[in-house]
Amino acid sequence: MSGWMCETVFAHLTVADDGTASGRFLEDSLYFMTARSHLPPPRPPLRKGIGNARESRIDPAILQCGTALWVAQLAAPQTQVAWGENVTFLIDASTGSRVEARPDPAGGWTVLQHGPTRMWDEIEKAIETWQEAGQPHQSGFGLTVTPESPWVWLGDPDGPTWNLPA
């Protein structure tokens, strides 16, 4: 499973008699070449200072940790990330939504969100859920796939979940 933030994980799934599949993500880091049809769309230009500002509850620099970036992909699967000097940009090319996260001179971090999708709100909730669980590696997560939908769970299938685009 890979996202447009370029974090990739593999899962070992077991198929049940009813056709559903479930299992955990692997500990090993594995890589493969992405097919052109799976690449993200061209990223729009990065522009600073757009959107409604608020204080962030998490340090945007945490997204430089591979597992945290993967968790962010769960919350905002259509999002691309870019880093500038002390700035993290997130862009959803499908909706035009944008996030600019940067240190606040008074302390903490400021986030500007623009567009129909409040990506940082969802990413922040996902990261906090992961932190509350002790920041487990991707192997602490699992995947369930049914004919209706796929979803990722944290800890066990009854734990926190994120629905995946089909």
Rank of each mutant, 00 (worst) to 15 (best):
L164K: 11
C65P: 02
D59L: 10
H137I: 09
A72D: 07
G134D: 06
I91T: 08
I58F: 02
Q135T: 15
E128C: 00
E132P: 00
V111F: 02
P41R: 13
S149N: 09
E27N: 14
A75H: 05
L46Y: 06
E148Y: 11
P41W: 13
L74G: 04
T129P: 01
H114F: 07
E85R: 15
I91G: 02
P45D: 15
F141C: 14
P103D: 11
M33E: 13
A61K: 14
Q113S: 14
N163P: 13
F32C: 00
E148I: 14
W70D: 13
T95N: 02
P40H: 10
A75S: 11
S2L: 07
A75N: 02
P136C: 07
E124I: 12
A126I: 03
A133F: 08
L13H: 07
I58L: 09
R43H: 09
D17S: 01
I62T: 11
C6G: 10
D28N: 13
N52E: 14
R43M: 15
L164C: 12
E27S: 15
G23K: 05
A82F: 03
G19I: 05
S139Q: 13
V111R: 04
G107K: 10
F10Q: 15
Q73N: 01
G134Q: 03
L90D: 04
Y31G: 15
W153L: 03
V145H: 01
V99Q: 06
A53S: 07
F89D: 00
L46K: 08
R54A: 14
E85F: 00
W151E: 03
D156H: 10
A61N: 08
T95H: 01
I91M: 10
H137Y: 15
R36E: 09
P40Y: 10
S97F: 09
P42D: 15
L30S: 08
F141W: 13
V111D: 03
E132N: 10
A133S: 08
D17G: 07
K48G: 09
T34S: 03
G134P: 04
E100V: 00
D104F: 03
T79K: 00
P103G: 13
A16H: 13
V81P: 08
V99G: 05
A53N: 02
E100M: 01
W109Q: 12
R47K: 14
A75Q: 04
L74E: 02
A21W: 05
L154R: 00
I91A: 10
L154H: 03
F89I: 01
L74I: 07
V9S: 13
A106F: 09
Q73G: 08
P77T: 01
R24N: 12
